[in-house]
Structure formats: C-alpha cells, structure tokens
Design a protein around this nucleic acid. Structure first.
Length: 279
DNA sequence: AAGCGCAACAACCGCCGCTTC
DNA sequence: AGAAGCGGCGGTTGTTGCGCT
C-alpha cells in the first residue's frame, strides 16, 4: 500500500507546460519539506498536478545541481560509448553524467547523438554490441566491469579530447560519508529532497537507486565516474539560487542547515558530509 | 509578413518491480 | 498470499522556436 499521507480527494489534474508560479510552488515546497510521498506533494504544495508530474518536473528541471548548459563533446562521447554498452538504459547512462537527467540524455540522444553515432560507425553502437554481448546480464556485467575500472577503458578509447579529463576515484575527490555503510546502521532518514536524491552524484555507491539496491547487489554501480572536475562551479551551483531565494533554510525537521550562501553551500559539498545532518 | 517544415525540448503515458498492508 | 499504491524507467507525443520559402 502507499503511504497514508496520500489519501487525497480526486482532482482534475492540470497537464501541459509548467508555469513559473507552479515551479515556484513546487520548489518552495520541496526545499522546505522534502518530497516524501510524491502523490501527496501536489496536494500539500497547492498544485493541481499529479505526483508523477511533480516528480518529473523536480527531477528534470527544478532539482538543484542540474546542468542546463549544452552537452559538451566529452559528454556526447560518453553517451555514445555508454549507449553502445548499455543500450537505452537512459537512467544508468545519466548516472555517469553528473548534472544530467535521463530525460535530458534521452532527448539529446534522439536529436543529436544518434545521428552522429550512425554516421561514425553505422550500427556499431548498441545493436551490434548488444548482439555480441548476448544478454542484458552480460551487458550488466560489462557495465560493472567498466565501473569497477572507473571506466578507464571507455575513456582511453575515446577521442583525444577526452583525455583531458581523467576520472578520479570519487573517494579521492570527495571524501564522502559512506552512505552505503551508513545505511547498514540505523540512521535518521535523510532529508529526501536535498540529499538522498543527489546521492547518485556524490555517494560512494554511485547511482544506485533503491530498486537497484533491492534487486541485486551485483548491480550496484560502484564509484561512478563522478567527474566533478567536469562540472564547473557555476554549473554545479545551478539551482542553488533556488535555495538561496527561498531563504536558504532547510526546515526544522531536517536540521538547521544554512544554505544561504552558495559559496558556503559549495564549500559544504566539498566537505560533503556536512550535508548529512544528524539530528 | 505569413505559412510551412523541422529540430529540440518538455511532459505524458503505460508498464514494471517493489513495498506495504 | 494477494491486492493496492508508489516510484522509476523508457517510449512516445505535444509544444515551442527557428529557419526557410
């Protein structure tokens, strides 16, 4: 069953493009309270949308940390390579591209990269690879292998431009609180919106969503590329203005995390674990 | 200036697996 | 054990903007 919080009257849900006011409402609400149960979000935020729509809007557009800039050549190359291995597993591909969403990657693929991929090597991308790999299981293993090796293979094969960014093991970059470990011992729940959702970008066990975690440990994507060096400070901070704008305070239930200054915020991320607040 | 076609992006839909009761 | 609800994913459709005629 769903959560009890989700009991709601039947609403005629609005569809179509989001207005700035709706964005603001959703952003304000989630920054203040976290999303919790998505289906209750629109009710509580005073939106005539369904929960899915809110979730999608947040994930694809409003969530802090998203890059809104054009895809770089490096990112395109990465997409092509990963697509050759994984196929249309957009969410997994997106995990390797900090600040990018699956929808963004998917759209970009369909409009830009697909053509290039076809041009470059005909069907050498997914179709051929998929056949040679034989099964999802094998491609999964390949993916794991790549992850375990920090995708060095991918990168070494890629164009010279790619050589400019070498994936640094995330531990060395981030000294992140080991979320996987912390999950083993009872911990206060993370403020979902600000932190848990970002874990794919920062956490040690990479972009493992709950489903993946629950299905198979072997699926766990170990330290993702986490090429934070690819993210300019500006990109990285994109969206944090929202936090600043909304007063910069996470509501009491999540502890007094002052995010007023984006510099502080970023500094906070550099030392990361400040974000995981024990109450 | 208007109409058309195309590309790019945003959002919806349907399905699936998981969790909870 | 089974039903119901949720979150997440991938495919598809809708909308918008821009360039060309």
């Amino acid at each position: 069953m769903g959560c009890k919080m989700c009991e709601k009257p039947k609403v005629n849900h609005r569809k179509g493009l989001w207005s700035p006011e709706e964005d603001q409402r959703l952003r304000d609400y989630i920054l203040a309270h976290g999303h919790g149960c998505w289906s209750s979000v629109p009710v509580k935020a005073g939106l005539q949308r369904n929960g899915k729509s809110c979730r999608l809007r947040w994930i694809n557009y409003l969530r802090p940390g998203l890059k809104r800039s054009a895809f770089t050549h490096e990112e395109e190359a990465m997409i092509m390579k990963l697509h050759a291995i994984m196929g249309n597993k957009w969410s997994r591909i997106a995990m390797h591209l900090p600040g990018r969403t699956d929808n963004e990657v998917k759209n970009h693929w369909n409009t830009h990269v697909k053509k290039k991929a076809i041009k470059i090597d005909g069907s050498a991308s997914h179709d051929t690879m998929a056949k040679s790999l034989g099964s999802d299981d094998q491609s999964l293993r390949m993916e794991q292998f790549l992850d375990e090796n920090n995708s060095q293979i991918l990168l070494s094969e890629t164009s010279a431009s790619l050589e400019s960014f070498s994936p640094i093991p995330c531990q060395s970059i981030l000294n992140v609180t080991n979320h996987a470990q912390s999950q083993r011992t009872p911990q206060p729940p993370l403020p979902k919106v600000l932190f848990e959702d970002w874990l794919p970008m920062f956490s040690d066990n990479g972009g493992v969503n709950r489903r993946q975690e629950s299905t198979s440990n072997s699926e766990a994507l170990s330290p993702q590329l986490l090429q934070l060096d690819m993210i300019s400070t500006d990109d990285f901070l994109h969206g944090f203005e929202a936090i600043s704008n909304s007063g910069g305070l996470i509501q009491p239930q999540y502890g007094p995390v002052d995010l007023v200054s984006s510099n502080e915020t970023y500094a906070g991320f550099e030392s990361t674990h400040h974000m995981f607040v024990d109450l």
